[in-house]
């Protein structure tokens, strides 16, 4: 029964951000220590969500006191991208929280942990929780996970700091807003493409069928399919009447 189940919240915690032994944390909270919160691959977070995690908290040091200079800011960038992806999936973006914590904080870590747990409880159980039926949402989260695992988003994320804080290879300045706009666009593109990929993995689908699921214009779906063919993500499976159907290819 759903009511009897516990809330599952994972807290990825920087090894250096918080070390008090006697943490008064709720039992629903599972702490996973990592060397730096910048260590957390966005794909990992999406995978935990996909597997039914109700909430994911990332705890890092307050800037500028990261042990690894700016690992906390790297995490912030990842979370920013994750939120963009999550928004597209329809899963509540509030299920991810990035907390910058330091021992000088007036509140204890337990305070924040409880607060986050409370917030998650207010949102409710993850719809992807164990036993929940396979849903559109699962497809979305899978697509988001695959997008986050794909070279394109990863390389942009990896270069964000260089581009926004320094200058690009031509010596030009790139504002955070410009980068954000670019990322918005590319995150959406990649999400849609990977969603198409996930959807066509099980059965060949037409542009129209995909457009219905994606709630997109057919013309845009076709453009994505053209692009995915270029990248060997999808191939024409067969034609039914005047309707071509496409099937996903295994991505290396």
């Amino acid at each position: 029964m759903m009511e009897l189940e516990n809330f599952n919240v994972v807290c990825f915690m920087c090894n250096w951000a918080f070390c008090q032994e006697e943490m008064q944390i709720p039992s629903d909270l599972n702490i996973v220590r990592v060397m730096c919160i910048g260590r957390i691959d966005p794909a990992i977070i999406l995978e935990t969500l996909e597997k039914g995690m109700d909430g994911v908290m990332l705890v890092g040091c307050k800037p500028p006191d990261c042990h690894f200079i700016d690992g906390n800011l790297q995490a912030e960038r990842a979370v920013k991208m994750l939120r963009k992806l999550l928004k597209l999936t329809g899963l509540e973006t509030e299920r991810i929280k990035l907390l910058w914590y330091s021992p000088t904080d007036e509140k204890t870590f337990a305070y924040y942990a409880k607060k986050f747990l409370k917030e998650i409880k207010e949102i409710g159980f993850s719809p992807l929780k164990r036993g929940a039926p396979k849903s559109k949402l699962l497809v979305n989260v899978l697509a988001a996970k695959n997008a986050a695992s794909d070279f394109r988003l990863r390389v942009l994320l990896g270069r964000e700091k260089e581009l926004t804080e320094g200058v690009n290879v031509y010596g030009e300045k790139f504002s955070v807003e410009e980068f954000d706009a670019l990322l918005d666009e590319i995150v959406t593109e990649e999400f849609v493409r990977h969603k198409i990929h996930v959807l066509t993995k099980t059965e060949p689908l037409s542009v129209k069928a995909l457009a219905d699921v994606l709630e997109m214009k057919t013309a845009n779906v076709l453009r994505h399919i053209v692009n995915m063919r270029r990248k060997n993500m999808i191939a024409l499976d067969h034609v039914e009447g005047t309707t071509p159907l496409y099937k996903a290819l295994e991505v290396k």
Binding site: V34, M35, R39, I40, F68, R154, L157, G158
Partner: peptide
């Protein structure tokens, strides 16, 4: 720190002790 492993676009970097699978 593992930031490289989190960012490597080709997922070619793993951490000896704490690979992604273990975190997961």
């Amino acid at each position: 720190c593992g930031i490289c492993a989190a960012r490597c676009p080709e997922k070619a970097i793993t951490m000896k002790k704490l690979p992604n699978e273990k975190i997961l």
